[in-house]
Nucleic acid binder design. Structure first.
Length: 645
RNA sequence: GCUGGCGUAGCUCAGCUGGUAGAGCAUCUGAUUUGUAAUCAGAGGGUCGGGGGUUCAAUCCCCUCCGCCAGCUCCA
């Protein structure tokens, strides 16, 4: 072969000599392209820039503008990290080092533990190697020889990976004199392309993610094309830290977790309590408007119930241990479904009664392993806005539509404009791990899809991700700083109606088994509360704010006037607080600002005289003096409208 | 549960690898009566997470338990 034909995305064709690399082609186009080039795409496959073409090819040069290039860049930085570790700690065994969102990690095995000081040293060594512009060199290896070689190198985890994953011929990449790694690649041409990274922390991680395996030491790092990108990311991290609901929860005195009481158990303080009440009131009202009934079920029930429901078997690890009472064992509820089922089953139902929608803000208790709790987001006792819908097959689709409409209405009400939906389906019955009759699966999955179509919701379908008892649709919201949170879920349950032998009498006079849908929109009230705190960074919209108006007399002389206004606000249902401390307004304003109170009413001599209030908004600042009645009207209207301003 | 880090006043944090603890804010008291993000002064407040050990002596060293943080695993 005398020459190779390379076709570029714009259709232009270059004839190049054998041995030519994508980087050579890029240089031929422009030095700037060669400089910005990170990796090549040859016939749709990622390809090292300095790997010679092997045949006629379609070539695309990926630069710092391509997300795939960023992954390659991060993976190469991970290799640099591992090379630095081997320089400093030669006895270290390598596991894997993939790119992740915002950076990469690398897992290592070695007898001694990395310390924060070691991270600094490793980072220093990485820059040292980076400055040498070390090439990432690609080599081909025959599998059997490779296994032999890595065994000789005493890299047991690499041997395992090669044995499992490598083809007859596999690739490996070297970096510097000491580092060689079984790796699919591709990589950067050399380390001089690496401009910004930072090692962040050390964590334990199980080999291959299995807790039965050995625990390795994982180094997490962030890596970016430019220092600027990295600084922006680090600033974002800081921002997220400032929004942490655990921190804001303490600063605004919303809730606490008490060591004496136990981990994962939440105490709502008065200010958190009023917010929670507002959420719950809204939800209960919405239930009633949408044709749900409100029920209450016990927190402890006989273990026999949990045997019938099956939880005593498949869910026992997550349940608080049984307690002896009289001659029977009782157990705290980890779910509300059996309770609702008992209510449904307490009497006969006609097909005309359906759908029956039983809703409850039901507090459940689940045993979570000690290391897994996290503020309000992962707890041992929480309250689900839980409802179960019992319906006929012909009603399923409308019910799902109603559930999804309810879910999106909930999101909108609390200020979330963006969300994602995922439908989890079965495997078609191939594995036999799914419960329930096939026709029910087909009906239910069809209803989920059709409901999304009807509402114009774009839902991603994830095959073989359903629960064993039925398919589901999950709604995930996007918060103020772009993070994704799992929230609402609508799930079919084909198992429990059978276990409890649920029935209704059809038009034909015969008994039929109803379909059961389980749904939660907030998911857990505690968790949703925590998400809200982070979404608003503590600055709740007025209708949710624990203190809506702070009335601030300037001197003692205005206290009677301010007192009067406070009473009028309270009488109108506004959460107003009078600050009658003998302090300067500056301090009173500061305190109200720090507490993120939406409105401050400054009351001085001039205002008291004329029946005015000088309005200050926490974000918009001083808005000037207006008649009190006018303020009262606007603030009550704002609250009634559940304005998100 | 596992790995690593951490636990000092209500909060945020100092405390020089052993000699029974400090600051700012908050609280209380007094003075000040103040116009849009901190008025001044004084006072009180800590079995230095719990228990055990080493030592003449432990906030500091060792063991153990509890809790918190970052992850892993698991998950609403």
């Amino acid at each position: 072969m005398n020459s190779i034909q390379v076709t570029l995305p714009d259709g232009s064709i270059h004839q190049v000599a054998p041995g030519t690399t994508p980087l050579d082609v890029a240089r031929g186009i422009s030095p700037r392209l060669a400089d910005a080039a990170i990796v090549a795409k040859v016939d749709g496959q990622l390809f090292d820039l300095n790997r010679p073409f092997e045949a006629d090819s379609a070539l695309q040069i990926l630069t710092t503008k391509d997300s795939e290039a960023l992954e390659v860049y991060r993976h190469s930085t991970a290799h640099l990290c591992a090379a630095a570790v081997l320089e400093l700690f030669p006895e270290t065994k390598l596991a894997i080092g993939p790119p992740i969102e915002n950076g990469f990690y690398y897992d290592f095995d070695r007898p001694d533990k990395f310390t924060p000081d070691d991270l600094d040293r490793i980072e220093g060594k990485m820059w040292e190697l980076q400055a040498k512009a070390l090439p990432f060199e690609r080599k081909l290896m025959e599998k059997a020889a490779g296994i032999e070689k890595y065994t000789a190198m005493n890299e047991p985890m690499k041997v395992e990976l090669i044995t499992e994953r490598a083809g007859d011929i596999f690739t490996e990449y070297t970096l510097g004199p000491n580092f060689i790694d079984f790796c699919r690649g591709p990589h950067l041409p050399d380390t001089s392309k690496i401009k910004a990274f930072k090692l962040l922390n050390i964590a334990g991680a199980y080999w291959k993610g299995d807790e039965k395996n050995k625990q390795l030491q994982r180094i997490y790092a962030t890596a970016w094309f430019t220092k600027k990108d990295q600084d922006e990311y680090l600033t974002r991290l800081e921002e997220a830290k400032k929004r942490d609901h655990r921190k804001i929860g303490q600063e605004l005195d919303l809730f606490s977790i008490q060591e004496l009481a136990g981990p994962g158990l939440i105490f709502f303080h008065p200010k958190g309590g009023i917010i929670r009440k507002t959420l719950e009131d809204w939800m209960r009202e919405a239930y009633l408007k949408r044709g749900y009934s409100l029920v209450y079920t016990p927190h402890v029930m006989r273990r026999d119930l949990w045997k019938v429901s099956g939880h005593a078997n498949f869910y026992s690890e997550n349940m608080f241990a049984p307690m002896e009472l009289d001659d029977a064992e009782y157990q705290l509820k980890p779910m509300n479904c059996p309770g609702h089922i008992l209510i449904y089953r307490d009497r006969q139902h006609s097909y005309r009664d359906l759908p029956v929608r039983l809703g409850e803000l039901g507090t459940v208790y689940r045993y979570e392993r000690s290391g897994t709790m996290h503020g309000l987001l992962r707890v041992r006792g929480f309250t689900q806005d839980d409802a179960h819908i019992f319906c006929r097959p012909d009603q399923v689709e409308d019910e799902i539509v109603a559930c999804l409409d309810f879910a999106t209405d909930t999101l909108r009400t609390f200020g979330f404009t963006s969300y994602k939906a995922e439908i989890s389906t079965w495997d078609g019955g191939v594995s036999g791990k799914y419960d329930g009759e096939p026709d029910k699966w087909v009906l239910a999955e069809g209803a989920l899809r059709k409901a999304c179509d009807r509402l114009g919701i774009e839902a991603k379908v994830i095959p073989d991700e359903a629960a064993f008892y039925g398919p589901k649709i999950d709604v995930k919201l996007v918060d103020a700083i772009g993070r994704l949170w799992q929230l609402s879920t609508v799930q079919f349950d084909f198992t429990l109606p059978n276990r409890f032998e649920l029935e209704y009498v059809g038009a034909d006079g015969a008994k039929h088994r109803p379909l059961m849908v389980h749904r939660a929109l907030f998911g857990s009230v505690e968790r949703f509360f925590g998400i809200l705190v982070e979404h608003y960074a503590g600055a709740f919209p007025t209708w949710l704010a624990p203190v809506q108006v702070a009335v601030l007399p300037i001197t003692d002389k205005q206290i009677p006037y301010a007192q009067d206004l406070t009473e009028k606000l309270k009488a109108a249902g506004v959460r107003a607080v009078l600050d009658d401390r003998g302090e300067k307004v500056n301090l009173k304003i500061r305190d109200a600002q720090v507490q993120k109170v939406p409105y401050m009413l400054v009351c001085g001599g001039r205002e008291a005289e004329a029946g005015l209030v000088a309005v200050r908004h926490r974000k918009r600042g001083d808005a000037g003096a207006i008649p009190f009645e006018q303020f009262l009207e606007t603030v009550t209207a704002e609250i009634a409208a559940k304005s998100l301003e």
